[in-house]
Amino acid sequence: MTAISHHIPEPMLAAYAAGNLPHAFSLVVATHISICAECRAVVEAHEAVGGVVVEDSGAFAVSASMKADLLSLLDDPIPEAPVYARSGPYPGPVVEALKGREPRWKKLGMGVRQDILAEDKHGSVRLLYIPPGQAVPDHGHNGLELTLVLQGSFTDETGFFGVGDVEVADETLEHTPIAGAGDACICLAATDARLKFNAFVPRMLQPIFRI
């Protein structure tokens, strides 16, 4: 894998460490830090600071019933969650989101495919498969989009993005991503609002594709 050049912004890493990110963005951050030592170190630093703050916080009194409820919860066995290893181009957090299955690709046209991993009122996260040399229709953004490259590469108006790179797009960016030569480009993309497609056909199909 080539060196990672585009990272998660530190305020977002801090929000992730504090547990304040929506699920869609948290999955992208978790996947990125699983392969990026630099951003993983930043998250660990924020977590360490948070731990110190908790330790330095003063104790406060609770009712006897609340104390009993808390102690009973500590006595309950914690179910062991399965640990997912990397599978092909998919790091552990993505394999976990897939629940160990292979992606269920749905065609979007021109060879582009997607698998929506999660969707709620706060946003959505999906895998995108883009054949070599294929462009994603020109579009802008109504909110924030994080796109993490898992395989292959793409270029757009802002530069080149290879495996491990994350593009952070907001309302100021309008672009036309184009997959690079070689392997198909597979990305993990999270959004908190629908995209703004400029062409009529993508706009017409947008409610069907939920993107």
Rank of each mutant, 00 (worst) to 15 (best):
Leu127Thr: 01
Val125Ser: 07
Leu128His: 02
Ala37Tyr: 05
Ala17Cys: 05
Ile35Leu: 10
Lys196Trp: 00
Ala193His: 15
Cys39Met: 12
Thr172Lys: 12
Thr2Gln: 02
Pro91Asp: 02
Glu157Asn: 07
Cys36Arg: 05
Leu27Trp: 10
Ala118Phe: 10
Gly92Gln: 11
Gly100Arg: 10
Thr31Arg: 12
Thr147Lys: 04
Val166Ile: 09
Val125Phe: 06
His32Phe: 03
Val136Lys: 00
Val62Glu: 09
Ser34Met: 08
Ala85Arg: 12
Arg126Asn: 04
Asp56Arg: 15
Gly162Cys: 01
Val163Glu: 15
Ala135Trp: 06
Ile208Trp: 14
Pro207Cys: 15
Tyr16Gln: 08
Ala189Cys: 12
Leu148Gly: 10
Gln151Tyr: 01
His6Lys: 06
Ala189Asp: 04
Gln134Ala: 14
Gly164Val: 07
Val83His: 11
Pro131Ile: 03
Pro79Ser: 08
Arg40Lys: 15
Pro11His: 10
Ala18Pro: 01
Asp69Arg: 08
Gly100Pro: 04
Leu73His: 06
Ala81Ile: 07
Val168Gly: 00
Val62Ile: 15
Leu98Arg: 06
Ile178Glu: 08
Leu98Ser: 11
Glu171Ser: 09
Pro22Glu: 12
Val49Asn: 05
Lys107Cys: 01
His122Cys: 03
Val54Asp: 11
Arg210Met: 12
Gln114Val: 09
Glu167Thr: 01
Gln134Leu: 03
Pro202Phe: 09
Phe209Val: 14
His23Tyr: 14
Arg86Lys: 13
Ser57Asp: 12
Lys67Glu: 15
